[in-house]
Design a protein around this nucleic acid. Structure first.
Lengths: 363, 363
DNA sequence: TTGTAAGCGTTATCAA
DNA sequence: TTGATAACGCTTACAA
């Protein structure tokens, strides 16, 4: 016999014990039973803006709290056809390269009430397997931070799955994209350095099939051609520190001498190139050779480097992607939109940005 | 009238058109209708190891492919009580500090057939809001890369939700934990440096309430006390580059001279400290002062730094967390287990690790 | 091996 | 404002 003086909840503890004993979940039915209302009344209490009387609401909430009841999202999504989950397909390297991207996307989608379901790819070519899982989870939309084939993009269309491609170029496809204009960035950088009197260019590029760096390289090469300068010497790298040193040696070997400037496909390679030039080859940078990076990562601003580079506005891009996807999910339509952002030039001190004195003399 | 010569699928196209018209999802019912079998037969075809004849399987799969049918995970989880989703609660800083942790956790849980649902926290104190959402999603388990209160941990217990805390200390609670032994790391580092003859220690620590760095500091302080050396001078930092320089100036100011060695709560602070010492104060490192970091991040290995530091085996830890959580999810029981990993000492070249000559003379 | 039928836990519709 | 009842799309006994 209970001696509790208030006995606030009639049988609430027994009810809970029974549920535990039967090893089942707490449902809106249990809450209804305890609160003495119908199950649909309980459901309404958890729907914002539904019409419920204050008294009912209070009783239901009390019962719910006592039973630790939480609505089951799976059951809800079955009928509402909304999961409030967005899939993010991101390659391992993309995540390491821009760790803030995922964080930002998560924060931004969170503001729209969506959570991220993560699909990480060992390899950019691996998207297929992730996709077949994505369809099962009935997500409301997808953000792809990886390259997709035309067939894959077509499947999104066919399944009417809202898609935003983040920071990858999609050639001529009707897809929503948020990206940084890599071609423009390469173009601008080359122009700026050529203006400072650099003539022989080396480029340490990324791997063959990666779109972003190759767009940059084309931008730079096009600008050099336009200016009538010799074509750059190109080395391939893997975006890592070691590639920078390897690339520099390769370029010097091919050219027979030090180039005026080396453009690197990533900051990490630029830093590798810089360290090799200074500590192993004994070159003064930027006096004897200029080095420029891409993708301003944090270390590029450190005193030992202070790299000349370009920053992608990842935060703004994440915000744009979240907005774009939300619009798509709400309306299920809309023309394909491509939001392009410009990279921001960071002067740094590893590239000579003014013409050397003798250029003035020659002029 | 169709003139197709094979007519492989009887009415499959019309069926699909009808579904599209009615704006509903493709269900196992549709597949059953097209394949001429029962709905449960379709279900069985998608359940690995169920008993289906080859002929039925083939017809079902053909129909499914024609209709782009994919089983609905929400409906499935409603009955199976498994979502194959694991929530990860991670603070913004934790993700930026160890971007590979999330990637590794995703890869490792993927090998167990689980996907990660991401909850990022602006602030470590913010877990409460994330949790109330976690319960709704009916995830199979949770990995917390953030600090949890006792009440929060108790709620996991109450809801019988499998939980693994990653790389955070949980004082005296019965929780499954995978972590790196920070106390031991601090202890070892101090011992090693003291053995090399360093006597006056400075420590640039993290923010007050963060457990990991303070455990390290205690480890180091305890060892110094044990050896009868003077207590270290402690400065507080925010784990960022600027904090390293600020901390160093503070220590020097407090001490009235340069300390023998500065232990930093993170590599980034150590690098900031190092750059400040070399480029702003003109100190030779390690000749005039030693600097050591923590949490070996990639830049610490670069030629310009080559930092003396300790590496946490994040990959191994992620693997252990995935295993531990999987075991919990499968069995729903088991004692609380704490898997401790040791940090790996990286010699680098920013700390003097051998006694200076005059020590030999004095001995 | 196959089909029938009963859930899983919600939301949505419609009378009352 | 409320309560009955019908979905939502699947898995799983159980019977055939």
């Amino acid at each position: 016999m209970s001696t509790s003086k208030t006995a606030p909840a009639p049988g609430i503890a027994e009810h809970k014990a029974a549920i535990l004993r039967e090893n089942r979940r707490v449902t809106s039915y249990d809450v209804a039973l305890v609160a003495g209302v119908s199950q649909s009344a309980v459901s309404r209490c958890f729907k914002p803006g539904a019409s419920v009387s204050k008294a009912t609401y209070a009783r239901v909430m009390k019962a719910a709290a006592g039973l630790d009841y939480i609505p089951n999202a799976a059951a809800r999504s079955l009928i509402t056809r909304r999961t409030n989950v967005v899939a993010v397909i991101i390659s391992h390297v993309a995540n390491l390269c821009h760790p803030e991207a995922l964080s930002e996307l998560s924060q931004q989608m969170g503001r729209h009430g969506k959570r991220l379901l993560l699909f990480t790819l060992q390899d950019e070519a691996d998207a297929e397997r992730a996709l077949s899982e994505v369809w099962q989870y009935q997500v409301d939309g997808v953000i792809a931070v990886t390259t997709l084939t035309d067939a894959q993009i077509a499947e999104f269309e066919r399944r009417r799955m809202p898609l935003v491609v983040f920071n990858r170029r999609v050639r001529g496809q009707v897809v929503n994209t948020v990206a940084c204009d890599q071609y423009e960035a390469g173009h601008t950088l080359a122009a700026r350095l050529a203006a400072a009197g650099h003539r022989s260019f080396g480029i340490i590029d990324g791997v063959e099939n990666n779109a972003a760096p190759s767009a940059r390289r084309r931008g730079a090469s096009d600008k050099l051609a336009e200016l009538g300068l010799p074509a750059p010497v190109i080395a391939r790298g893997q975006y890592d520190y070691a590639s920078g040193a390897r690339g520099l040696r390769e370029i010097i070997g091919h050219l027979g001498r030090t180039p005026d400037v080396v453009l690197c496909g990533s900051d990490i390679m630029a830093i590798g190139c810089l360290d090799c030039a200074r500590h192993e080859l004994g070159l003064a940078v930027p006096e004897q050779m200029s080095v420029a990076g891409f993708d301003a990562v944090e270390p590029s601003s450190w005193l030992s480097y202070n790299l000349t580079t370009l920053r992608q506005p990842i935060q703004k891009m994440a915000m744009a992607a979240a907005e774009l996807l939300t619009k798509l999910m709400d309306s299920r339509e809309g023309e394909a939109e491509k939001r392009m952002f410009s990279a921001l030039f960071i002067e740094g001190s590893t590239a000579r940005l003014l013409p050397p004195p003798n250029v003035f003399l020659a002029a």
